[in-house]
Design a protein around this nucleic acid. Structure first.
Length: 897
RNA sequence: GCCGGGAUGGCGGAACUGGUAGACGCACCAGACUCAAAAUCUGGCGCCUGCAAGGGCGUGCCGGUUCGAUUCCGGCUCUCGGUACCA
């Protein structure tokens, strides 16, 4: 065999052979060597956005997936590992504007390049199942399912609030808002209400929550907690303050927000005449109400604004700014009195209505009762505007209205509460619900979760299959006319969707009356695409029912998915939408299971430095870290940064996830070109455990490269001597050979355990230890060396499939065990793990003072005797009485004095 | 703001259920080989102290539980992810 490791040559040869034999293609009827069906294992990663090049997050994600898939295949599973492209989305439109190229062309070219990179990485992907979400064959089913959900009432239309750029005259994504300003225009962003389609995920709130607790046992606890908190179930009372307020301009109460409301959130009758409904989890504090606060969009606020200029001005002011929750929650709490009064349902007192910017229209009824005595936000608000603060709950601790204290929000017993005085929390809640029942009051469950708005005023997405007819209204596109195809040659210009200006797309006939009509120009949120793509993979396009069904019959074999892998950034939105979508498909009779992902691994983010500069108009421009260099002070600490090309200054914005928009992604191609895919894969796996965030640094790739060179050189050196070595006979080995076998098998045991808990960085450590052991014992009996090499190659193979595959063949293991891809996973030999003597450490008062070697069969008394007579221990115990002796078998002795 | 993570040598990280802190590597230092460099090989490497044997300190900060705490509990700091139109 060649004496030098040549990664390029080896990797191309291996990949060529794998492609020739189509070795990673899987079917639903695979059988093992015993003729029995193999158990299936579906291991899938979140699909990449084709931004141009793979970045390190992709390499990490798909190598984790690949290690799992390859190891489980060796363990006898029928493993599916597919790949596809999340091809719709904003970055394609940005690239189109920047380079004057159509999103379709840009996307397709990126996919072609990134697919080559995937293949060069040697991932064991079944490419026969590949597709892109911008394929009409795929997004047709987004449209089909949208219409099915519309029929079922899961899809409905209402208004939505969006970020509006008044200069570019366009809707902005949250990401396109920087410091409250449009990213291109630099103009302050405003809120604007427009119509849109919604999916009623809140109808499933209870089931989604219940399954988090009872079915998602293979998910990380942190993700389950995040989903629970996101759904945010709270139990309380919804009741009304009565009033006689009327809009002076119209006889009936207006509904400025128009058509529907989130039915699941129970917001259907908030504008009911004469009643101001509020929801509260603290009905026990109802006697402490000193004001009511409504959102700026609330009907009472709108009515007040017609006659009160202060209110009108305040409502106008709240329109400034963005729709982002982080902005809403951190801004200064402000309000204005309306001069309107409602009646307290229990006391009959007059309570003034305020408009507050901290009241969210999207939660509950868009109105709250103000109890400054026991709610921190209300307390702040009351202090600011001089409203009365009244204590009505005794928490057993001192109370003063001077400053808020955490215990004011605790449960206790009611005081100064008239008929409710001395009531417990539960009694008070029941009492309020009963007393307000006559006017619609009731105990109620409220969710923080909102329905999913899917309409986007953008070009590069799935067209929403609706036709607007002046006579018939909104008409669904007939199923036989699907897909509504997206034109491929448009180039956006930054001022609204180009679909709105494309007559060929827009103009059509109404399916109902045949008159001229207009297509809906909004497209779907890309989370729609990612809500079910993993089921389309299971339906290979060779399947008979692939073209006329959303998912083929093969989906029943592969789903639910055994292991899903992806970034922690998707812990809530994507993973919640996918769960909802699955339940909706189930309810349409398409699936037999409730949850799509049995086990979930959330890999940590790969972070890199972020550099930017503010443009003249106020917009922001990002720079790639590779194009930036630091300027050092005398001590060698970076004080500022500049562009390499012209020395102009740029600002440093800390570290953050690698993203297309921030230009801080790192292309792995240089690493692959210099060291090969195996070294790159090994480096990424070695550098940290899968779930941990990593700050990118490339220093260290050459270490894994060095390791693979050492491995090759070692195998070449022992090749001739060990090729025809016999089986190990453990009883005939000398002490050194036994020790070597023990080390190899103990390390194998550890590595197998680490594979099972997906801790791949220590698997790599184990491989390094094994090579160290082999090198130190290169003159051991050939049978023992050969066994050691056979174990090392199989443990390393899932991480470095090319070099190990080549060595496996070179050393003639293939004849013995078969192709490495399907070779049996090695098991540690119990005989090799046996040890005659065990080393135990001895502590004095918990501090390490010595160590003893004890026979395997030593009794507790023998161990204690050896421990207290140890020299290092005696030095510290001299002259002091021993109070206690703690023996942890096989580990340590602690002498307490 | 709210929800969920994280913090261990100069650096990446290890330590499985409360039981030897720093495995495995990187960087660095010294030596070997070389005309020289690279590569490779050997040894050293938490901090302070000591000629050494040894001793003291040490897992973001403050406190607690325990024979024993990186690990459990309470309170902080900084940082990362998400926050519903980035994907």
């Amino acid at each position: 065999m060649n004496s030098a490791y040549q990664p390029k040559q080896i990797e191309i040869a291996a990949q060529t052979e794998w492609t020739r034999t189509d070795i990673y293609r899987v079917t639903e009827n695979a059988t093992g060597k015993d003729g029995k069906p193999k158990p299936k294992f579906y291991a899938c990663s979140m699909l990449p956005y084709p931004s141009g090049k793979l970045h390190m997050g992709h390499v990490r994600n798909y190598t984790i997936n690949d290690m799992m898939a390859r190891q489980l295949r060796m363990k006898g599973y029928n493993v599916l590992q597919p790949m596809g492209w999340d091809a719709f989305g904003l970055p394609a439109e940005n690239a189109a504007m920047k380079n004057n190229v159509a999103p379709a062309k840009w996307t397709r070219e990126n996919i072609a390049y990134m697919k080559k990179q995937c293949q060069a990485m040697g991932w064991a992907i079944d490419w026969s199942r590949e597709f892109a979400t911008c394929d009409p064959e795929y997004y047709k089913w987004n449209q089909w399912f949208f219409l099915k959900m519309l029929e079922k009432g899961i899809v409905y239309k209402k208004t939505q609030v969006v970020n509006w750029d008044p200069v570019d005259m366009t809707v902005l994504a949250n990401e396109q808002v920087v410091d409250g300003k449009g990213w291109r225009s630099g103009a302050p962003v405003e809120k604007r209400e427009i119509p849109g389609y919604y999916m009623a995920i809140t109808k499933y709130a209870d089931e989604l929550l219940d399954c988090v607790a009872n079915k998602l046992t293979g998910w990380p606890a942190s993700v389950r907690a995040m989903q629970e908190n996101w759904i945010g179930k709270s139990v309380g009372v919804r009741f009304a303050f009565l009033h006689t307020i009327r809009d002076s301009e119209s006889p009936t109460t207006p509904s400025p927000l128009g058509e529907g409301r989130d039915e699941g959130s129970g917001q259907s009758d908030q504008v009911q005449e004469g009643k101001l409904f509020v929801f509260t989890t603290r009905a026990d504090t109802i006697m402490g109400v000193t004001f009511c606060a409504v959102a700026a969009e609330h009907p009472l606020a709108i009515i007040a604004a017609t006659s009160n200029p202060n209110v009108a001005a305040f409502i106008e002011e709240t329109k400034r700014g963005t729709v982002m929750e982080a902005d809403m929650a951190t801004m200064e709490k402000k309000g204005v009195a309306t001069g309107l009064y409602v009646t307290h349902p229990l006391t009959g007192d007059k309570v003034e209505v305020w408009v507050g910017n901290y009241v969210l229209m999207s939660y509950g009824d868009g109105a709250v009762m103000g109890v400054p005595g026991h709610d921190e936000r209300d307390f702040e608000f009351a202090k600011k505007y001089g409203l009365p603060i009244k204590q009505v709950v005794d928490t057993g601790k001192a109370y003063s209205t001077d400053a808020w204290q955490a215990h004011y929000g605790d449960h206790g017993s009611c005081i100064e509460s008239g008929p409710m005085t001395d009531m417990t929390f539960d009694a008070a809640i029941n009492y309020v619900a009963a007393q307000t029942a006559e006017n619609g009051g009731e105990k109620k469950t409220q969710y923080r979760l909102r329905d999913w708005g899917i309409s986007r005023q953008r070009y590069w997405g799935t067209p929403i299959p609706i036709i607007h007819c002046t006579d018939c209204g909104d008409v669904p596109v007939p199923y036989e006319d699907l897909p509504v195809k997206l034109p491929l040659d448009l180039i956006p210009d930054g001022s609204g969707s180009p679909l709105k200006k494309d007559a060929a797309f827009l103009n059509c006939a109404c399916p109902k009356c045949g008159k001229a009509a207009t297509r809906e120009s909004d497209t779907m949120d890309t989370f729609v695409d990612s809500s079910w793509y993993y089921m389309r993979y299971t339906s290979p396009n060779t399947a008979l029912d692939y073209h006329d069904k959303m998912v083929s019959s093969c989906n029943d074999y592969w789903m639910p998915m055994d292991q899903y892998i992806g970034g922690i950034s998707h812990a809530v939105l994507h993973l919640l939408y996918a769960r909802f979508w699955t339940k909706a498909m189930r309810d349409l009779g398409m699936l037999k299971f409730d949850e799509p992902f049995t086990n979930l691994l959330c890999q940590g983010m790969v972070l890199n430095y972020i550099f930017y500069r503010k443009g003249e108009k106020g917009g922001i421009e990002y720079f790639a870290p590779d194009d930036v260099e630091p300027v050092m002070d005398a001590v060698g600490k970076p004080v500022r940064y500049r562009l390499r090309v012209d020395g102009s200054p740029v600002d440093y914005d800390g570290v953050g996830t690698m993203s297309k928009s921030k230009l801080n992604g790192v292309d792995p191609q240089d690493m692959i070109d210099t060291y090969g895919a195996d070294a790159a894969r090994l480096f990424v796996m070695f550098s940290s455990p899968p779930e941990q965030t990593i700050e990118w640094s490339s220093g260290g790739v050459h270490a894994t490269n060095r390791y693979l060179h050492r491995l090759w050189t070692f195998c070449a050196a022992v090749s001739d001597a060990t090729r025809s070595a016999s089986e190990v006979e453990s009883s005939k080995l000398d002490v050194d050979a036994k020790k070597m076998r023990h080390d190899i098998h103990a390390t194998l045991k550890q590595a197998s355990y680490d594979y099972s808990r997906l801790q791949y960085n220590t698997v790599v450590s184990a491989c390094m230890k094994m090579l160290n052991t082999l090198e130190e014992n290169r003159h051991a009996p050939p049978s023992v060396v050969r066994e050691g090499v056979s174990i090392l190659l199989r443990v390393l193979y899932p991480a470095c499939p090319h070099v190990t595959w080549q060595l496996w063949n070179e050393l003639d293991f293939a004849n013995q065990w078969g192709d490495l891809v399907d070779a049996p996973w090695p098991e540690p030999d119990p005989a090799a793990l046996e040890q005659d003597e065990i080393e135990m450490v001895v502590q004095v008062n918990g501090k390490l003072r010595g160590s003893i070697r004890v026979p395997k069969a030593a009794t507790k008394e023998m161990i204690e005797q050896m421990a207290i007579t140890d020299v290092g221990v005696a030095r510290h115990t001299e002259g002091k009485p021993i109070k206690r002796l703690i023996v942890v078998p096989g580990k340590l002795v602690n002498v307490v004095i």
